[in-house]
Simulated scan of single mutants.
Amino acid sequence: MKKDIERHVFNSLKEQYLFQNLPTDLIDDQTDFTIHNIRDIHPVLPYTSIVYRVNFFSFVFVKSGTGRYTTDEQIYTTRPGTIYFTNPGHFKSFEWQELDEVYLITLSESFLKENVHADIFEEFPFLLAETVAPRVLPPEEFAVFEQLYLLLKKEYESTSFYRNKVIGNLFVVLLLKIKEFFWKDYNPIYEGNRSSQIVKTFKRGLEKHYRDMSRGVIDKPFRVQEYAASQGLHPNYLSNVIKTKTGKSISTWVSEKTIAEAKSLLQNSTKSIKEIAYLLGFGESTHFSNYFKKHTRQSPVVYRKELKS
């Protein structure tokens, strides 16, 4: 089943719609941002999608419609007043029984960073939350978002030279309203058991990876991206959870583990400094020696000599 799902990975909404034999004339190829009323895409109801992954963000605003969607193993119903979003990397599917006005916004991470600002995830960390449950708003509160997404649609359909920048600024307002209504006090630590499991899995993965490196099974350290990919998470989100739950950044965990493994190899093996450097992913022994000295104030040679004495 997972192998089938992995074949359905889409980098854009147009790519997804083409695969699903859905109309794409409402999608502009010149930008990584889209907005349209889903009613115009699904003339025949009910509609059930395949299970797939995407590499972009999706925001859905249900003024009038009913259905449900899944993200990984979570199943949520959608009804009038529902607002929800999903981020890249998760297993997804959806179905619609009724559609009248349901607006979908999609955009890439690069669009966010280029047209909103580079530190978008610091201001709006909830964008990287693993799974965020939908919210259902009363009509008067939903109207605030309706006004914003209709403004976004109008700008999306314009030919202005500044279109993407205007869309970016309007989207900031939309995110601020989402933050105000839904996640004003968002913090990954409050995601409870799942965040704790993420930390445990990261620690186990870190330990296994360095164990494999010291045995020569793997020849380079993982980056944040690899640790995140192993759990199907966004790198920024994993970093946020680890830092919040442990008080230490991933880079600190990695550097501490590197030094611990280096000390163990220097003490318990007869391998040369060059061999140890290679096992720990350093291309040159001088880089390893400088790294070790930076973190211990001793060179590997001096450390090993002191142990012998």
Rank of each mutant, 00 (worst) to 15 (best):
D28F: 12
T34C: 06
T77F: 10
F61C: 02
V132Q: 05
I218Q: 06
T244K: 11
K165H: 11
T31E: 15
E180N: 12
R7N: 11
L112H: 00
T66R: 08
A129Y: 10
L280A: 00
G81K: 01
Q267A: 13
K294M: 11
V136G: 08
H209N: 03
K293S: 14
A277S: 14
L176W: 10
Q147K: 15
I276F: 01
R39D: 11
I250H: 01
T244W: 09
E261F: 02
I105C: 10
F171L: 12
S196H: 12
Y52D: 00
F91V: 04
F10E: 02
F57P: 02
P188W: 03
K208N: 10
L170D: 03
V302H: 03
K245A: 11
I120M: 05
G168P: 00
F124Q: 04
K294L: 09
I167C: 04
Y291A: 07
T131D: 09
H42M: 10
V173I: 15
I167T: 00
K14N: 12
S299V: 03
V224T: 11
F161G: 07
Y303F: 15
S299L: 02
E191P: 02
I189D: 12
D219K: 13
Y291I: 06
G216A: 04
Q197G: 06
E157Y: 09
R194Q: 08
L265K: 00
V132M: 13
H90G: 08
S251K: 15
F202K: 04
Y303L: 02
T106W: 02
K177V: 14
E95P: 01
A143F: 01
L174S: 10
G247R: 12
I5G: 09
L112D: 00
